[in-house]
C-alpha cells in the first residue's frame, strides 16, 4: 500500500495579527459598533433633555428593560437551538390574567399580600410552563415545525387571555405597584431579580452542558443525536423554559401595571425576535452571543423610551427600530461576507 506524504489538515494559519489590525477587527465587530451607536443615541437624548441621564429615567429604563429581557432570552435559547417561539407574547397575556385571578382569590381569602404575590409568581410561571409544554409536545411528538406549533399557541393564548379576562383588566392591586416601586438608587428589587435571572441564563447558555447542547442541536441536530444527545428531550425543555420565562414576564407586567390585562404582551414576540436579530444571533440556529441580545434589548428599550422622553411622536418609534434592525443586518452580512472572501 502506498503511503501518502501530504500533510494532514495542514496549518494554513495566517501569522498573528498586528495590534493595530486587532483593534481594527474589534472595531469592525458588529456588537461593538452597535454599542457605540447606543451610547451615541443616549447622549443625543440627553442633549435634548438633560434629565435623561438622571436616576428617575434610568430607573424607568431598567424597569422597561426587565419587562423585555426575559422573553428575548427565551427567544435566544429557542432560536439558537434551531427553532422559533412565536407564542411568548400571548403567553405573557394569558399568564398575567391567570396570575391576577390567583392573586385576587388569595388576597380575598386573607392570604396576605406578599404570600399572594409569591404564589401568583409561581402560577404565572406554571401557566407559561403549560404553554411551553404544549409547544414541546406539538413539536417533538406531533412533529409540527416550530413556526406552526407556536403559531397555534400564539392564537390560543391570545384567545384564552380574552376569554378568561372577559376583555378587561383582572384585579387592581396597588400593593403590587407599591412593592414593585421599591428599591435603591436606579434599581428596583424586581429589576434586580430579573437582572439576576438574566445573568444566570447567560452563564448557562455559554458555559454549561445544557447551553452546549443547545448550540450543538441548533448547529446540526443529526450530529448532536449521533453524539448521544437526547435531542427531543432537549428541544422540549427549551420550549418549556421559554414558556416559563414568558410566564414570569407576565408576572413582571402584572407588577408594573398593577393588574392582569389581556392585551399585555400581545405582539411582543416580534420585539423579542428583533432584539435577537439586532444582537447578531443567527435565525437558523447554532450561533449567537448572549451579550448580543442584552445589547438588542437595551437598544430597543432606549429608543422606545427615549423618543417619548424627547417628545417625538411615538409613530416614529417603529421607523427608528427598523433602522437599527437594518443596520444590524447589514453589519452582519458585511462581516460574514468578508469571512467568506478570506
Amino acid at each position: 500500500m502506498s503511503t501518502v506524504e501530504t500533510p494532514v489538515a495542514s496549518s494554513n494559519e495566517a501569522p498573528p495579527p498586528s495590534p493595530l489590525k486587532r483593534i481594527a477587527t474589534y472595531a469592525a465587530n458588529q456588537q461593538f459598533i452597535l454599542f457605540l451607536v447606543l451610547i451615541g443615541v443616549m447622549i443625543f437624548f440627553d442633549f435634548h433633555n438633560t434629565r435623561f441621564f438622571g436616576t428617575s429615567e434610568f430607573t424607568n429604563l431598567l424597569v422597561d428593560f426587565s419587562e423585555a429581557v426575559l422573553i428575548a432570552a427565551a427567544e435566544m435559547y429557542v432560536i439558537t437551538s434551531g427553532g422559533i417561539d412565536l407564542s411568548v407574547g400571548s403567553t405573557i397575556a394569558v399568564s398575567t390574567v391567570v396570575g391576577a385571578y390567583a392573586i385576587q382569590y388569595l388576597e380575598g381569602h386573607h392570604f396576605g399580600e406578599f404570600p399572594s404575590l409569591l404564589v401568583g409568581t409561581f402560577v404565572c410561571a406554571g401557566v407559561g410552563g403549560v404553554v411551553g409544554t404544549i409547544n414541546a409536545l406539538l413539536i417533538t411528538k406531533a412533529r409540527l415545525v416550530p413556526f406552526v406549533a407556536t403559531l397555534v399557541t400564539l392564537s390560543m393564548g391570545e384567545g384564552l387571555a380574552l376569554v378568561f379576562s372577559k376583555g378587561g383588566t383582572v384585579g387592581y392591586d396597588p400593593a403590587a405597584a407599591v412593592w414593585s416601586s421599591t428599591g435603591f438608587w436606579i434599581f428596583r428589587w424586581l429589576t434586580l431579580i430579573v437582572l439576576g435571572i438574566t445573568v444566570i441564563l447567560g452563564i448557562v447558555l455559554h458555559v454549561s452542558r445544557y447551553g452546549r447542547y443547545n448550540f450543538a442541536i441548533g448547529s446540526n441536530p443529526f450530529a448532536a443525536r449521533a453524539a448521544g444527545i437526547n435531542v427531543n428531550r432537549h428541544v422540549a425543555s427549551v420550549y418549556v423554559l421559554s414558556g416559563v420565562l414568558a410566564g414570569l414576564t407576565g408576572m413582571i407586567w402584572y407588577f408594573n401595571s398593577s393588574g392582569g390585562a389581556p392585551q399585555n404582551g400581545i405582539g411582543n414576540e416580534l420585539e423579542a425576535i428583533a432584539a435577537v436579530v439586532i444582537g447578531g444571533v443567527s435565525l437558523v440556529g447554532g450561533v449567537g452571543r448572549f451579550s448580543g441580545i442584552i445589547l438588542g434589548v437595551a437598544i430597543l428599550t432606549v429608543v422606545h423610551d427615549g423618543l417619548v422622553f424627547i417628545n417625538v411622536a411615538t409613530t416614529w418609534n417603529e421607523v427608528v427600530v427598523a433602522g437599527f434592525i437594518a443596520l444590524a443586518a447589514v453589519l452582519q452580512s458585511l462581516s460574514s461576507g468578508s469571512k467568506r472572501r478570506t
Binding site: 452542558r209 448550540f215 443529526f222 449521533a226 453524539a227
Partner: peptide, 26 residues
C-alpha cells in the same frame, strides 16, 4: 463509534467542543 453519512459535526461549535460533544468535561 460510527460516523454516519449525514451526521458529522456541528459546524458552529469549535473543534474542541465537537470532539467532546456529548462527553463534555466538567
Amino acid at each position: 463509534e460510527t460516523l454516519y453519512q449525514d451526521s458529522g459535526l456541528a459546524p458552529d461549535l469549535t473543534i474542541g467542543s465537537n470532539i467532546f460533544l456529548g462527553r463534555e468535561l466538567e
